[in-house]
Design a protein around this nucleic acid. Sequence first.
DNA 1: TTGACAACTGACTAACTGGTCATTATTATA
DNA 2: TATAATAATGACCAGTTAGTCAGTTGTCAA
Lengths: 285, 285
Amino acid sequence: MSKKQLIIDAAIELFAKKGYETTSIQEITEHCGISKGAFYLSFKSKEELFLSIIDHVITKLGSTIDHLVSGDLDDEYKMYMYFTQLFEFLSSHRDLATIFNWERPHQVEKQLFDKLVFYDKQFSYTLLKLFESLYGEAIVETKYDLVLCVKGLLKAYGEYILFEKGTVNISAITQSFVDKINVLAKHAKKPFLTEDVFNNYGIISTYTVTLQKIEEQIKAAYERADQELEKESLLVLQQQLQSEQPSNAIIEGMLHNLRSFPGSHHISYLLRLYRRQQQNGKKHG
Amino acid sequence: MSKKQLIIDAAIELFAKKGYETTSIQEITEHCGISKGAFYLSFKSKEELFLSIIDHVITKLGSTIDHLVSGDLDDEYKMYMYFTQLFEFLSSHRDLATIFNWERPHQVEKQLFDKLVFYDKQFSYTLLKLFESLYGEAIVETKYDLVLCVKGLLKAYGEYILFEKGTVNISAITQSFVDKINVLAKHAKKPFLTEDVFNNYGIISTYTVTLQKIEEQIKAAYERADQELEKESLLVLQQQLQSEQPSNAIIEGMLHNLRSFPGSHHISYLLRLYRRQQQNGKKHG
DNA sequence: TTGACAACTGACTAACTGGTCATTATTATA
DNA sequence: TATAATAATGACCAGTTAGTCAGTTGTCAA
């Protein structure tokens, strides 16, 4: 196992137990039997470690779940599988999930906050699309409200899973969960979060990826990067985005160069979204 | 305004903005224009300040809501009013609610953790009783599950209120919320959290107040106390609890002596519960 | 065996923490 | 006004923190 992974694993365990603020780097290094100096060979700072862990969990969860959404399964079954995976992930990566559940970044820590807000919005958007294709016209008035409620239910169920020390019956919990979604979708007729209010709240659909936002991320990543290849790749990437006719191949190549670099997953995510938006724009325009 | 209140107000503002761990006493004292030494004239430590804030919020919320539960209003209306008060409290004490929502004590901070867990259980219990008297036999299988779900929904709605900077339509939000509870109570038929599972989870009804637990709290309070009257009152209270025939009058008197002492509210809460338990025990035994 | 290079160490720094206490300012009392 | 009592101060303490860097150790090719 790489040193980086060793540190991440120790940190996840300790952050889950004691919290980010109250866990010192000293403790982390002691816990995995390396020196303090060695830590700074792998990470530039404590904050970078934390960002790294977030990327870690997003990548891990994303790789098991993302393909589900884009697959062409039956919608009902898709939803069932989606939450099964989610609950399974929670129960098999309890420490990781505990950190996510407990550790809330305050607005002060800008980068961290933005990132989590972004993933949250993405998640909401995924749910919205799922519900739209499942229930169609029936929930046109209540769909935004439904998303909010389902996220709330998820928190309650998730917390139960994290709390419960023994094994959890994932199948039973998922069935119960999906039942509730069906019930709410079918019978709840007094939405609070309608589209109007919703746009103010701005959880989901109003979030558009702009070139500027991506460039900000690239710039931030550039400052964290230390290897030449990474730095150059980020520069090339930025140039491509600013040019009139960006080359698909070069962009893909740069992302490939950056794949082991913390934060690159987020950038490529943004890029994918951005391109999808552009295509939709063309279709509708 | 008393110095204590001045500090509490400043602390609430800063804790909400920056978090408990990352807010220093220096910052708090600077924010209200007093010296560091003056802080320690009002509070023994940073932790006591935090415990004080919790008591503060519980007392504030409790005094506006508690009488509702014990009053003899129509159940449906009672539920509506209950959540109205709750949402109103959230939106008019946003900083306070933000702290409660974001700041999670880790098991390490034993006293704090116990206290919050306790209030959480109390809240669950209140909901359970409310639902039982509202829906009766219809939810006998699903009531524990319903409590869990409602708490989840509450988190989602509550977070929306905290997030939303402008004014919030409390009436609309409550109607929507109550509608969801009704829908879930009527139609959700696949409970996950049945009584069995529930007892393991142990959120609610399995929580029994023992004399030992109360004595622990008194002991902890004794160590925090600095005035003679408080100390003596706590000692007398403990003696009364241990004696064969505790005197109601003395206990009430001691609680009265302690009413301005942080934490006394919690102790009297426990005592009320304990006595209720004893009475129920007699009835059923 | 040598030497170049990378990996690693842990004492060290500067800043900050919660908390203390001798000193000073303010107020009440005589 | 003089004296006692109380309130408030901020320099100071011991401890901890993230982060650094001169020096040691290990590795491997020549």
